[in-house]
Amino acid sequence: MVKEFGAWPETVWASGDRFGGTPVCGTDVGTTSVQAVIMSDGALVAYANLRCGYDFGEAAETALTRALKAAGLSRGDIKTCRATGFGRRRAAFADATAEEITCHGLGARYVFGPDVRTVADLGGQRTKAIRLYDWDRVRDFKISDKCAAGMGRGIERIANLLEIPISEIGERSLSAEKDPEPASTTCCNFMYPETMGLLRQGFREDEYSENDVLAAAMFTVAWRALGTIGKLSPLDIGEISLDGALGFTGGLAKNPGVTKRIERELGLSALPAKYDPRLTGAIGAALLAERDINPR
């Protein structure tokens, strides 16, 4: 089975700048990926982002090691560490855990700036929608049902079946000639056969290009995300009032095929991210870790 197309690239980064203060660490151990960030005095020092295998603890450990290496730091340099995310309790090196909604809220303000009011976390398995007050607190949140999970994973599978790199899949779906309906609005396990089925010639007039096929799949994911985001603010979905600006986080935040379609349906443009939006949860955890040592 081909696997490399659905495997998005893992990343490591360090600012390279000199930094002051006391380094802390935040890690977000998701179902599909793990991020570890090192922050100091409110600045982002380094991070690592990688795929989870079967051992969440080991994945978190690897993420931290990579981030430290990039920053030129050792474990002993880190004053304290907070873990969040699905597998937070497996991060043995964490001094404390924090739940994901709070971390996403805090992190979002860092990543998107103070205007952000709604955060849509589009992950490998689940979608979370968070509403914030204009100060530092979570006002409301919704998490997707167990049903309709697995959308991010579903896209990995589509990428592998079609043999199109996952990093291109979103952009290409925006060049579709047709504006197809979503391949499903219920389930990612229905999505992939129906998406692949579009390659079959139906009626002669129903020829689908590869971009059209991708469009149908991306639309599915976008539509399911709307099902969760919309619950935050149940007004007319077409004129949904999100009280301010929206930020996308999570793996699918990097997929314009999904994010642009959500924007189109909501009739708005999301806020640009100042940092890789996938780091939002880990940044939030790190900010909490900073508060642990500098309580306000």
Binding site: D55, R89, R90
Partner: peptide, 20 residues
Amino acid sequence: GCPVFAELDALELLNIGVPR
């Protein structure tokens, strides 16, 4: 009953330390 639920369940099992 559902492969999507099954995958989530499997991840949760790994999360609580069930051997692979």
